[in-house]
């Protein structure tokens, strides 16, 4: 939010107030010295600094491992790497069964996935104040204040539990499917 520049009288009052505070409050005096040198004021209890957004790199190993599991059980990568345009729906459908059955088995074996909202999709739901905005996303006419009432279009999924296989030290996870040579 942009602040308006203070008027002359306000500035005069501030100058006196600051004069006395610099004399009496050594910590404040240190902050002013930094301000004069063009540095940022040090964080104090009164001024809550906005948290700096921090982005972290996701750990690639778990992703590679899951990809490997989906490929092993459900031929996930084989399926996505192919050009489906060249095949009939029946052929794609047959392969999709392999992928669906295998990937589903892999998912249920390693992840416990549950819906975020238990209501059937299409029902009207009310979100109380303080709802978890990362678990429920508002769409459409997003105005006003909570409680929000609207129709549930997607129930959402949350991974409640994850148990991936343990990996031997030194094992190369980037090999999600080894090449096979039959002798």
């Amino acid at each position: 939010m942009a602040e308006s520049t203070p008027s002359f009288f306000v500035r005069l009052f501030m100058a006196f107030a600051v004069f006395w505070r610099i004399l009496l409050d050594p910590v404040f005096a240190m902050s002013v010295r930094r301000l004069r040198r063009g540095q940022q004021a040090r964080k104090t209890d009164e001024i809550a600094e906005a948290p700096k957004p921090r982005l972290t790199e996701a750990e690639p190993n778990a992703a590679l491992q899951l990809l490997g599991l989906l490929q092993q059980e459900g031929r996930f990568i084989d399926f996505l790497q192919e050009d489906v345009a060249a095949y009939s729906d029946a052929e794609v459908g047959a392969a999709a069964r392999v992928v669906h059955e295998g990937c589903r088995k892999s998912l249920t074996q390693h992840l416990a996935i549950e819906p975020i909202r238990s209501e059937p999709e299409g029902t009207r739901v009310t979100l109380e104040e303080g709802f978890d905005a990362s678990a429920v996303r508002l769409t459409g006419k997003v105005v006003g204040h909570a409680p929000f009432t609207g129709s549930l279009t997607h129930r959402g999924w949350r991974v409640a539990e994850i148990s991936l296989p343990k990996v031997a030290a030194g094992h190369d996870l980037a090999i999600v499917a080894a090449a096979e040579v039959e002798l």
Partner: peptide, 18 residues
């Protein structure tokens, strides 16, 4: 109930028997 036999090679579509 459909039963499918995946191909051994990386070509899943087309190679899969249904």
């Amino acid at each position: 109930v459909p039963v499918v036999v995946p191909s051994r090679g990386s070509r899943l579509i087309g190679g899969t028997l249904r």
